[in-house]
Design a protein around this nucleic acid. Structure first.
Lengths: 234, 234
DNA sequence: TCAATGTTGTACGACACCGTACTGGATCAT
DNA sequence: ATGATCCAGTACGGTGTCGTACAACATTGA
């Protein structure tokens, strides 16, 4: 038999797949560059693809009738976009939006579903990620109820950092407020405090983490649990 | 071949299984009666069983280091307890606690995992439920951030009602507060308003819904979405 | 270079909810 | 029956966040 080639890129799910499964099912992957704040999934459009993130970070949002929104999940190279559709084609897809630009590998969802159905190895990897997302969203549900803007803001920055590995990220107060489900003015006030404390620096549309440890100390325990989950995906 | 018998009880997951899959894999089910407020899963103990709910309601909680807690999922006869362990044995089990007493069918998790791995029919049913729980927890994450105690309180009562089919339920203000992640005094105030409005009645440790439609009108949209998800599980 | 647009700074009254604490009534166990 | 325990009623100062609004600054495009 031909020796398996497998996947050598950055996505942890694809990397965790048995090489021969990868060769057999994932040859149709197409590399796409995602631009800042573009919407991958959402609203009315049916979901046609799943996306394996190589670089950058995307957020999963729950949006209410009045347009208010809250982030309920964050996905970097440890995961994929479209896991819900993989589990159950009938559920409405949540909105997914690009936070930090990067590249993803895209494939038709039907093909991925087929690999998922046929290969136990594929299932193991993707179900682990599904459990991960479930854990993240339950943690976020509690965090949103129990922790302050400051704590959650610090958590958000660290979660993004943990996924992208860079202290600098493109992010406005406005958009961060949208993610956290709070007022933009609330984020501005909080960001000022963080900056005064020397934990971050920011200017128009960009935030830089300058004191990682200090930020960790300020963030709620939810960030630590997220970090442990992330490590478990390696 | 012998004709399949299948399952004729109230649990919707078991009922949705192909009859021959049920006969083959689910013969070891053991009926258990759960008592009010007992803890099914949680904390340190490893999870040994999965539970298919026939009657009653259980809640999934996220608990913080300081002991504060928030409900992140609710499970009635439409579902099962232990789905996370089924998806990924490595994740820490969340706490699950009995809200409304009832009976469940229990089986060793390893056996269920085996059925899940071997039968596509079993997977379809259980993954649909997993997607359901993911949807519920993401909705709850947003709800916890965006909606008032009154709205969430009404939502909670209706979610329990939708699962158990009874207007009367054993519940103290203290415990409801624990579920919603708010003060007990806050629930008392809210419950008083609901009672004055004629939507509920309550006395020591018991709440009765007296105006279903009125309560629906008061609850946030999250309850409607939960109701639609529930219907989809039939 | 100038206007348009996007981003951040700031202010202020309103209010939902918190933390805490104490009371009285209901229920339970012996 | 009677303590002990659980549950609900109530109060009050404190505060985190809201809603809104406007101004100042940075960036972009023509």
């Amino acid at each position: 038999m031909a020796s398996a080639i497998g996947y050598r890129g950055k996505n942890r799910l694809l990397a965790a797949l048995p090489a021969d499964d990868f060769d057999r099912y994932f040859s149709a992957l197409e590399r796409i560059t995602l631009t800042l704040r573009s919407v991958i999934q959402g609203a009315a459009q049916p979901v046609k693809h799943v996306y394996f993130v190589e670089d950058g970070v995307s957020s999963v949002l729950t949006i209410m009738d009045d347009g208010s929104a809250v982030e309920v999940g964050m996905i970097g190279s440890e995961g994929m976009i479209g896991i819900a559709a993989l589990l159950d084609g009938g559920s409405a897809p949540p909105q997914v939006i690009v936070q930090i630009p990067g590249t993803v590998l895209r494939m038709p969802i039907a093909l991925c579903k087929c690999a998922f159905d046929e290969s136990a190895g594929v299932r193991t990897v993707m179900l682990r990620f599904a459990a991960d997302m479930l854990g993240l969203s339950t943690q976020t549900a509690a965090c949103n109820r129990l922790h302050s803007i400051e704590q959650r803001c610090a958590r958000w920055l660290l979660m993004a950092y943990d996924r992208v590995g860079s202290e600098t990220m493109p992010m406005t107060h406005e958009f961060l407020a949208y993610m956290l489900g709070v007022r933009r003015a609330g984020v501005t006030t909080t960001a000022q405090e963080l900056q005064r404390s020397g934990l971050i620096r920011y200017r128009q549309g960009q935030i830089v983490i300058t004191d990682l440890e200090g930020l960790k100390a300020l963030a709620c325990e939810c960030r630590r649990l997220d970090h442990e989950r992330l490590n478990r995906m390696l």
